[in-house]
């Protein structure tokens, strides 16, 4: 997947987490600074030229440049000079910045829907551990797989999540919206994102069912 770096640089697009993560991984390499120096100072450069100049294996230089090309940081152009074709790379943009909107990591975005109706799934293979205070759960243990393949996974809960799950309707009983359950449990809407996160996780593991 190619990220249109120029669009993002002009403020037309926002960078997603995986793109930022890939850019960071390139920047974190030992030879990254020297590589970018070459790209800034040369009009264009091939992988073999960069490798010989920096003392790298040609494959390393090629992977690095291909990666930058995929991210749209460099332009790649195929050339033919009396030998078999190869690529030359040109830096596309002199400014490189990582700007992430972390609110997009919220399960349904910052304004995620709290109106979906939920309840505990029938025969959910989970055990809810009650907190010392007795008014909420402290963890949920989920069993996945069968027989020897069966695995146990324990998820520690924050206090709002524990209170929320404590008030989760039982299987087959009348489902409630996330918002209603939060109100019942006395949880502020400020915690909506973390509640949605645990709901999504437990829905994925078939502990919670969403009623259409």
């Amino acid at each position: 997947m190619r990220f249109d770096y120029s669009r993002w640089d002009k403020g037309l697009d926002s960078m997603d987490f995986s793109t930022a993560s890939r850019i960071s991984s390139f920047l974190a390499k030992d030879y990254a600074e020297d590589f970018f120096k070459l790209l800034v100072n040369y009009q264009d450069i091939s992988a073999s030229e960069a490798a010989s100049r920096l003392g790298l294996h040609i494959r390393t230089a090629q992977d690095f440049l291909e990666g930058l090309a995929e991210l749209g940081i460099v332009d790649k152009k195929e050339v033919h000079e009396k030998k078999r074709p190869y690529f030359r790379y040109t830096l596309d943009n002199y400014k490189l910045s990582i700007d992430l909107d972390l609110s997009e990591l919220s399960p349904s975005g910052p304004d995620g829907s709290l109106t979906m109706l939920i309840r505990e799934a029938v025969n959910a293979r989970a055990n809810f551990s009650i907190a010392r205070s007795g008014d909420c759960f402290s963890a949920v243990t989920i069993w996945e797989g069968e027989g020897r393949e069966r695995e146990e996974r324990r998820i520690s809960l924050t206090t709002p999540q524990g209170k929320f799950l404590f008030h989760l309707p039982f299987p087959k009983s009348k489902p409630l919206s996330i918002e209603e359950i939060m109100e019942k449990a006395g949880i502020s809407l400020d915690y909506a994102a973390e509640i949605q996160d645990i709901v999504d996780e437990l829905e994925k593991r078939e502990i919670i069912e969403i009623i259409a």
């Binding site: 029938v122 809810f128 404590f166 299987p171 087959k172 009983s173």
Partner: peptide, 11 residues
């Protein structure tokens, strides 16, 4: 009636 047992406490 309805088989909806679950092993967790409830308010």
């Amino acid at each position: 009636t309805g088989n909806n047992y679950t092993a967790r406490p409830r308010p």
